[in-house]
Computed example of a mutant assay.
Amino acid sequence: MAQDHIETLRQLLAQKRGVLMPGAANALTARIIADLGFEALYLTGAGLTNMHLGLPDLGFVDLSQLVDYTMAIRNVVSLPLVVDADTGFGNALNVGRTITMLERAGASAIQIEDQVAPKRCGHFDGQELIPSAEMIGKVKAAVDARRDGVLIVARTDACAAEGFEAAIDRMHGYIEAGADIAFVEAPKTAEQLRKIPQLLPVPQMLNMVVGGKTPITDRTIAADMGFNLVLYANVALQGAIKGMQTALTELRDHGALDEASGLTATFAERQRLVDKPRFDALSSRYAIAQGA
């Protein structure tokens, strides 16, 4: 598999302009993100758990499921893809296998975090962390396991569990172990946001959770602070939930729904987004001639 998407991500990071990175929970969402002109996307573990299992973000997805969805997304978009691998599905040895599998599936960068398994969403309460030394071992295993240059994102949830200074201290250790991108989850103030890029020497990812603990910050301001990627991991999912509730409520209350309502995408738009015209052309190309 060509690895151009990894080099493209490296170039985006080097530009230091707060690239907006929406999250996708499935391949259709990934297609929409690409179609709208975004430059990178994120396979969200929380969104995957919510959308496909109907469960909260409490560590219910396994590696095989994550690999399958990474492959599905990579099959339909060429954008840089950052994959949320939670705690890496075990110890350092397991992390090595996780990196190998996800790199082969088409990840451009793979994120691992320092929570105790099973993890919980960084904007929930009650996070527990593994020792910093254990996470450093996981980062080293991730770096050693990669073969095609996939980037390693180290996330710490220490802001919630141990405080901001502890989060910075932990992240320094992860960077020394080889992490390419730093992800300090759930800082609570604008002052903390400003400090993170000043204190850490590698590219930074900022997570904007609609309704979460971190103050929503415009991407231009985030870029001026020094953040390279501005993640909206589940804005598409939350928008889809609102859209489904609105359309289905209309159907329930009125007994019918058509395109004139404006509450759904058109049938034609749906087919365009899944690339049906290309498959129609291929069907015509490979059709058996009459009488053959």
Rank of each mutant, 00 (worst) to 15 (best):
I216G: 03
T217R: 05
T217D: 09
D218R: 03
T220C: 05
A222K: 03
A223F: 04
D224H: 08
G226S: 02
G226K: 01
F227C: 01
L229Q: 07
V230G: 01
V230K: 08
L231M: 12
Y232T: 15
Y232D: 02
N234E: 12
N234Q: 14
V235Y: 04
V235Q: 03
V235I: 13
A236V: 15
L237A: 05
L237N: 02
Q238V: 13
Q238I: 13
Q238F: 13
G239T: 15
G239W: 10
G239P: 05
A240F: 09
A240L: 10
I241K: 06
I241L: 01
I241Q: 01
I241Y: 02
I241S: 04
K242Y: 14
K242W: 11
G243Q: 11
M244V: 14
M244S: 12
M244W: 10
M244K: 10
Q245P: 06
A247I: 00
L248C: 08
L251N: 04
L251Q: 01
R252D: 15
R252M: 13
R252G: 09
D253V: 09
H254L: 09
G255E: 06
G255L: 00
G255W: 04
G255C: 01
A256C: 14
A256P: 08
E259Q: 04
E259W: 00
A260G: 12
S261N: 06
G262I: 00
G262S: 00
T264M: 13
T264I: 12
A265F: 13
A265L: 14
